[in-house]
């Protein structure tokens, strides 16, 4: 629609429009958001390229003689292992990088699942109304009265009960994504439903209906792009929740098995050595987790204010 009126086209033009726009200006002038974004993207890049960046490969048979080494600046530390080693002689820094990769993957996959589920159900409820709407929103209300972490734990418990713990170790990753994703769809559904109720009375929707365009196409091609703003904001904050949820479940021992290092499993294994003084095995992964979730939260907070026209500065 807007193609004809806009003189500039193509990805390059879209990019330059973005850099000229309000959002980019707002971003450049909020130091907290810039710092948060730099930390988040720095950590993500290090995690994505963990295989190349990490100084050691934690999955190779480690040398037990290297076990329990403190960080390099403590007495007994060595230059080879910057942040020390764990009980099996694996390099803590490399473990954190690989663990962060798993944590980010689980977080992103879980958010994707809740977005797809929540947005679809919200669109359907808002557009069709009636019984469908009532059923979907009733389920949402019920789920909303329970904390997410409890829902995720229950789903995880039921799935592992039906498959048995042994086979569940292999399935741990998808089960975890499923449990976290299913526990967090309600917010998206409620927001999307509310915006859909407004959008469906707009003229472009009525025009599309008169042209007998199928409902599915109206929903996903016409309405969806107009209501994505709040979804992006909730999704960003949801990523922080999902990363923390993964770490919490793995820490509680119902998430990933210890053979699959994520930030949560690293903190869990390290926690056993807290009393004997080997603090670095658990403190460094914990600090990484806090940095990751704090940077996503701060960035998400900024995005929410920036995209909300009611909060003018």
């Amino acid at each position: 629609m807007s193609d004809a009126t806009s003189p500039r086209r193509g990805p390059a033009a879209a990019l330059s429009r973005f850099f000229d726009g309000d959002l980019w200006y707002n971003f450049r002038t909020s130091p907290l958001a810039v710092i948060a974004a730099i930390i988040f993207f720095g950590l993500s890049l290090a995690a994505i390229f963990a295989q190349f960046v990490a100084p050691h490969n934690p999955f190779l048979a480690p040398d037990l003689m290297d076990g329990m080494m403190p960080p390099m600046w403590e007495s007994g530390g060595s230059q080879t292992f910057l942040l020390g080693t764990d009980d099996q002689g694996r390099d803590v820094l490399s473990l954190i990088l690989h663990g962060m990769q798993v944590s980010l993957f689980v977080g992103l996959a879980a958010v994707l699942l809740s977005v797809v589920l929540g947005v679809t159900l919200g669109l359907i409820a808002g557009f069709f109304g009636g019984v469908v709407d009532a059923v979907i929103m009733r389920i949402a209300d019920i789920q909303l009265s329970f904390p997410n972490i409890l829902v995720a734990l229950l789903i995880d418990g039921m799935v592992s009960a039906s498959f048995g713990r042994a086979t569940q170790a292999a399935l741990a990753l998808p089960v975890l994504v499923l449990a976290i994703g299913l526990s967090d769809w309600v917010q998206y559904a409620r927001t999307v439903r509310a915006s859909t109720l407004v959008e469906r009375r707009r003229e472009y929707v009525q025009a599309a209906r008169i042209m007998h365009i199928p409902s599915v196409i109206i929903l996903f091609r016409h309405i969806l792009p107009n209501i994505m703003g709040p979804v992006v904001v909730i999704g960003t904050l949801g990523l922080a929740h999902a990363i923390i949820a993964e770490a919490t479940l793995s820490f509680l021992g119902v998430g990933l098995p210890p053979t699959q290092p994520s930030l949560g499993t690293l903190i869990r294994t390290g926690n056993d050595y807290l009393f004997s003084g080997e603090w670095w095995m658990t403190v460094f992964p914990a600090v990484t987790l806090v940095l990751l979730s704090l940077s996503v939260n701060v960035f998400g907070d900024w995005l929410r204010d920036a995209l909300n026209p009611r909060i003018g500065k």
């Binding site: 922080a240 919490t248 903190i267 926690n271 807290l274 914990a286 979730s293």
Partner: peptide
């Protein structure tokens, strides 16, 4: 309080143990 919201609860517990017990 903003930092408190972002901190996973089990990490708080761990640091409490590390400082006050260990």
């Amino acid at each position: 309080s903003l930092v408190g919201v972002s901190l996973p609860t089990f990490v708080i517990g761990m640091f409490l143990i590390l400082i006050f017990s260990v």
